[in-house]
């Protein structure tokens, strides 16, 4: 059983290691992640939202729905925890 798990883990790791050959280089300025939407955020965030911290402006303004869902998630986690194990003593 443990051997099977070890085999599965090694197979996954080998596949991923093979996959990294096609990945962009470390800190490459022309990697696909850096040329699609992020230049728009970096160049326009300051003049559109007047917030110097781009992370904050993307988090709360451009992707506000995302953060709303996030807040709902942690609220749901707290409610689930209370409903599961809260046991008031009489």
């Amino acid at each position: 059983m443990k051997l099977l798990a070890l085999l599965a883990v090694c197979a996954t790791g080998a596949l991923l290691l093979y996959g990294t050959v096609d990945m962009p280089d470390w800190s490459d300025p022309h990697s696909p992640a850096s040329i699609h939407v992020s230049p728009r955020y970096i160049e326009k965030a300051m003049e559109e939202t007047a917030v110097p911290n781009m992370v904050t402006s993307v988090l709360a303004d451009y992707r506000g729905y995302d953060t709303l869902g996030e807040t709902v998630i942690i609220f749901t986690a707290a409610m689930a925890c209370i409903l599961l194990i809260r046991r008031p003593r009489k």
Binding site: A33, S34, V37, S38, Y41, I42, E43, M54, V58, L59
Partner: peptide
């Protein structure tokens, strides 16, 4: 310039 700042999207 976009080249002077790290990509904020993964951080978010």
């Amino acid at each position: 310039h976009a080249a002077h700042y790290a990509n904020p999207l993964p951080h978010v």
